[in-house]
Design a protein around this nucleic acid. Structure first.
Lengths: 311, 311
DNA sequence: GTTAAGCCTTGCATATATGCAAGGGACTGT
DNA sequence: ACAGTCCCTTGCATATATGCAAGGCTTAAC
């Protein structure tokens, strides 16, 4: 039977100490276990490695030969472990972060500037995605999505909730017919997503707020939609954290057009083992926890990267 | 937690094949086991060794570094195992054989001349002992004793039975009073062991054959006793295989003075692992089995070293 | 679009390793 | 000669590793 390499650690320690019980203490395992593993090693090698006597365990010629081997293996293993530990703990390398367009540009991007100052050796590739993540091809390490990934092989966690409301520009509202109820909105031009190209049901808030309504200006990009609203082309449902960056945008029927959605965060389990990936994951989780008010569109929130409720 | 070196074998094979299931087949273990040990190794090293994808297991930078280490450890381990196996199988070295005086000189010694011709690299130290074996100090590798060793940590086996009878020289019987019964023997001088120096009760056959008898010529050496009998100094109980070498010795009241004893053979378990020690052990067992008639003192047996019943 | 194949992971039962405690052997001190 | 100590081995209960089988994911073939 083949030699168990891990038993060589035991052999090495007994050779060093010449006493099985002392070796056991140094290895932190039971003396009976050391005895068994040593005998098993001798069985596997079909030879005797120690002369056992009341004086202790003295190496045989075979044992001395194996000691050379075990010492070199130990040196190699120790060196590799030290290097790997050092490399892993250096917090360097690339992390590819897939995000939604709005969240990525208006929330994550400003915040990651701060992160990268703390971790200059970590490079973050921010990838706004307007479709489902292709996990099988490792196109991202971490993804922030609006739909909970169904893939149970991923590590998935709820990141935070966020709110959306219907907005219009101040200029538009001054020249258009007044809006006093949801029905009044039917008389105004709407801006929204392209029905056939919507990649998630979670984006279908216009349809749910105003059944049978129809957007006259349509785009796959929420940023494009927000620019159109700013230009006075009509009304659109926008994330509050995005709208706050444009003082010319005002909420329309704020209490009646409020929608809540959830951001999810997902990672491949083996990617999460990497220190740098884990660091980004932790940072995003912490940021979301500290900025819940901002994401929920509560009044008085600043849009800078300073956490409102610092830990 | 410390890296398990034996898991490096698994790592090595997966690195080679780039497919976990193929590595499992080559290693002869279950794919689920390979999966677990690989993940455990990555946990222990707190890093990721493979990029897993549908294409297979590609090494990471960390994995490539560890691969170097694993390869060198494998080379070392393989080389050591080969050398140890070769050394062990060469059947060379010394075997220290402790025996009783008579058995060693008159049975074993002639036979070992044959043995050494077959195994020229094995040196046998024949040590006639007139006392208990000091197993703790490794003074012998194998011992042939008349008393079963009680030490259960030894490998003990019955070697063979042998017979003893009372002998006198032909010359003595011609000039002495005739001996027609056991009671008549009380009128003759007896030769035996030194009571205070007898190291085994198994040697007290004189006392048992002739209660209250007293040896007038006493020695610790059975060879000395046999020489005294040959010189006509009296009668003694001698092993038949020894007495047959002296044609001038004749058994006295052969049927009434017959005594049977047993030879035991013992070895340290770890010594028995050695090829050369095992070889001597096997040879002695085979010899005893083939020469039972000789040892049991049956008529017509030759005293040379040729086995009577060859295999 | 559906089905089959290949690959890896995981639940559960079984096999093996380990720790604990007891026992035996050898040596030392009284 | 006897008792105590140290060391190693071994029986047994417990913890852990492994194999088997099932399930999930991805890709290819039809």
């Amino acid at each position: 039977m083949d030699m168990n390499w891990d038993d060589l650690k035991v052999f090495l320690e007994v050779a060093r100490t010449e006493k099985l019980s002392v070796a056991a203490r140094r290895l932190g395992i039971d003396a009976s276990t050391v005895s068994r593993r040593l005998h098993r090693l001798e069985d596997q090698l079909a030879t005797q490695l120690f002369d056992r006597s009341v004086e202790g365990h003295a190496l045989t010629k075979h044992g001395q030969l194996l000691l050379e081997t075990a010492r070199e293996m130990n040196t190699r293993a120790q060196s590799a472990a030290d290097i790997l530990q050092g490399k892993n703990l250096e917090n360097q390398g690339k992390v590819r972060l897939g995000v939604t367009e709005a969240f990525g540009n208006y929330v994550i991007a400003p915040e990651l500037a701060t992160f990268c100052q703390h971790y200059p050796k970590i490079t973050i590739d921010l990838m706004p995605l307007q479709r489902f993540v292709k996990w099988g091809h490792h196109e991202v390490d971490i993804a922030v999505t609006i739909e909970k990934p169904p893939n149970t092989s991923l590590v998935v966690s709820r990141l935070c909730d966020y709110q959306l409301r219907m907005y219009a520009s101040r200029e538009y509202l001054e020249r258009a017919e007044p809006i006093n109820s949801l029905d009044d909105i039917y008389n105004h031009p709407l801006i929204g997503y392209v029905d056939d190209l919507v990649f998630s049901d979670q984006l279908s808030y216009l349809e749910r707020l105003l059944p049978n309504s129809r957007a006259s200006f349509r785009s796959t990009s929420v940023i494009t939609q927000s620019i159109a609203v700013c230009e006075g082309l009509g009304l659109a449902v926008l994330p509050c954290f995005l709208a706050r960056r444009h003082p010319e945008l005002v909420p329309v029927l704020a209490d009646q057009t409020k929608v809540t959605r959830t951001f999810w965060i997902a990672v491949h389990p083996e990617q999460k083992k990497l220190a740098r990936v884990n660091k980004v994951w932790q940072h995003l989780k912490t940021y979301a926890a500290d900025n819940e008010a901002l994401l929920m569109g509560q009044d008085g929130q600043t849009m800078d990267s300073t956490p409102v409720n610092p830990h």
